[in-house]
């Protein structure tokens, strides 16, 4: 099987992080992400980021596994940075209530320390979610996703949909690939030479057969699931579901403390979500 066809390359290294239950990792991921998302204190954010990079090292995730993802996020974040500045260059001033100009730019627009702090903080907020997400995705056995989601009270039908997606995504991907090749043989041009409208029309030539063959597949899957009693009771159990042990509780408590810490810094030290060194 071609490795490119895997959605996430779950690696089976045995580390303390891999041994945690999927549910634990999901809850920790949510705690830490909320901690980062809530706080606009760059000190808190950098601390959590340092912590998650450390965990990433512990779980022995290779850079090659996450390179594409990192690149995508970088492009997104940098674009976001530029656009934020273009549309609201005075955002920092509004938030922090002071104005320290570094240099004047075009017309009435100038670069302020407040804006720099605001945008740098925001930049790190986004960046720090990457290692967290990566740890969850790459160290959790895909089979455990659904049971983890169900564990945090997501409806099991919705949770199972995640599992089904992981199951059939490679199939559909391969089918897309096959159809695309067959249509290229008929003369379909998917290269950048074709005009935009033509490319759009050409993409339809692949998508339509894909939809029709997927519809057959869906009928089959839903029959197979009905015949084995899917959906008959309000709850279900999971074959791949690790019981929580001490390490899990330690991880849960630790991430809850970090979350609480982040809230506490906002509430008692900064008296707002923002850290304001300008006052």
């Amino acid at each position: 099987m071609n490795t490119k066809m895997k959605l996430f390359s779950y690696n089976t290294v045995d580390t303390p992080i891999h041994q945690l239950s999927g549910l634990t990792k999901l809850i920790c991921f949510l705690f830490l992400s909320f901690a980062v998302m809530y706080s606009y204190d760059i000190r808190v954010i950098l601390l959590i980021m340092a912590f998650s990079v450390y965990i990433l090292r512990v779980s022995r995730v290779q850079y090659s596994q996450i390179r594409t993802m990192v690149l995508y996020v970088m492009v997104f974040v940098l674009t976001n940075l530029v656009i934020t500045f273009l549309f609201s260059p005075e955002m920092g001033v509004e938030l922090y209530g002071t104005r320290h100009v570094i240099t004047k730019l075009v017309g009435s627009i100038s670069l302020t320390w407040e804006q720099v702090l605001y945008q740098v903080t925001k930049f790190f907020k986004y960046i720090s979610v990457i290692p967290l997400g990566m740890i969850f995705l790459l160290t959790t056995n895909p089979s455990e996703f659904a049971s983890s989601l169900n564990g945090i009270r997501v409806n099991y039908k919705a949770a199972f949909a995640v599992s089904l997606t992981l199951r059939y995504f490679p199939d559909i991907q391969r089918e897309y690939h096959d159809i695309s090749q067959a249509q290229q043989a008929r003369g379909l041009d998917l290269s950048h030479k074709a005009k935009f409208m033509d490319r759009f029309k050409n993409a339809l030539l692949i998508i339509i057969p894909l939809i029709f063959s997927s519809l057959d597949r869906i009928e089959l899957i839903s029959n197979a699931m009905d015949l084995r009693g899917f959906g008959k009771s309000k709850t279900r159990t999971w074959y791949t579901c690790k019981a929580l042990n001490r390490a899990d509780y330690v991880a849960l408590i630790l991430s809850a403390l970090i979350f609480a810490g982040s809230l506490a810094v906002s509430a008692f030290i900064n008296h707002s979500r923002f850290y304001n060194p300008f006052l």
């Binding site: 895909p142 089979s143 599992s163 089904l164 992981l166 199951r167 199939d171 597949r217 089959l220 899957i221 029959n223 197979a224 699931m225 084995r228 009693g229 899917f230 959906g231 008959k232 009771s233 709850t235 279900r236 159990t237 999971w238 074959y239 791949t240 579901c241 019981a243």
Partner: peptide, 24 residues
Amino acid sequence: DGQFVGLTAGEDIAFALENDNVPH
């Protein structure tokens, strides 16, 4: 292939039991 709903053989075999809330 199409009726294989689990991500592994074990999960697929267990599917009916999961729906019956059989303990792990």
